[in-house]
Simulated scan of single mutants.
Amino acid sequence: MTLSAIAIDDEPRALEVVQMLAAKVVFLDLKCSFTDAFEAIPYLQQHPVDLIFLDIKMPDISGIEFVNCLQQVPMVIFSTAYSEYAVKGFELNAVDYLLKPYSLVRFTQACNKALELKKWRQGQLPQYVVSESPFLFIKTGYEQERIMLNDILYLEAEGNYVAYILKNRKLLCRQSISEALAQLPDRQFVRLHRSYVVAIGHIQKISRQSVWIHSVEIPVGASYEGTLAEIRTLLSL
């Protein structure tokens, strides 16, 4: 599988760097490069690509503004010399964020993330690994991280984020608890509170108003008591 791409940067030297590095990534097909972002818009309308290498700080239109004006947005890897733009890249769901100057290794890492994401979206990654446990990708900062479903103990809403509590670590993803639940298999995960989703297979104990995931007590909201009764039946408790 290959990744088709274009690069946009108002600095010709920066484009030369992308072109040089792209030539060393065997699965990357860099179609065109643009110093004028506006020239890239009609090109993308006629020639859709998988990925854009996009500078953020440009004179006439920023990379962020450019992404917002596209009707069909490819995957994006932002690049800039200004680290303060990383949060904006994260908010736009960028595949990665390259801080100039970057190395071939760092460039290749970003490309690998895009390739894996493309495979995942097209269903070309295996649905099961050796343990026969499916996985999913979640956004952590400006990276996509793959986690195994059977490693998830429970999810907890924390403001604008959801904390994925795993067997040996905790990950934060900027999303709502409803959005998180929508990407999980409903036969394995259930919402028992407006702020909590639990993995059914990790429930150790159930009381009238709580469940325990190992040693952690998770409250059951009043509107989810019917769901709790269904779990009792499912687990024969």
Rank of each mutant, 00 (worst) to 15 (best):
E132A: 14
Q109Y: 12
E116M: 14
Y154R: 00
N168A: 14
A180S: 05
A157R: 06
E143S: 13
Y164T: 01
L92H: 09
P126S: 04
L172F: 06
L172T: 01
K113W: 08
E145M: 14
R146H: 10
Q124I: 08
L98F: 11
A110T: 02
S133C: 13
A86K: 03
K100R: 06
V130M: 13
P134Q: 09
D151C: 03
A114F: 03
Y102E: 09
R106W: 06
L155N: 03
P134V: 10
N160T: 07
E91F: 03
E91V: 02
Q109L: 12
K167F: 07
S133G: 10
E132P: 08
A163W: 00
Q175I: 09
C111Q: 06
S176E: 02
L155A: 01
C111K: 06
N168H: 14
L125V: 09
L115F: 12
Y142I: 14
F137V: 02
V105Y: 11
L125H: 07
L149S: 05
L99Q: 00
K100F: 06
N168S: 14
Q144C: 15
P101N: 11
Y161R: 05
V129K: 15
L171E: 03
G89F: 11
P126N: 04
V130Y: 15
V95W: 00
L171D: 04
Q109D: 13
K113L: 10
A114D: 01
K113V: 08
G141N: 05
V95F: 00
A157D: 03
K167C: 11
Y142F: 15
P101Y: 05
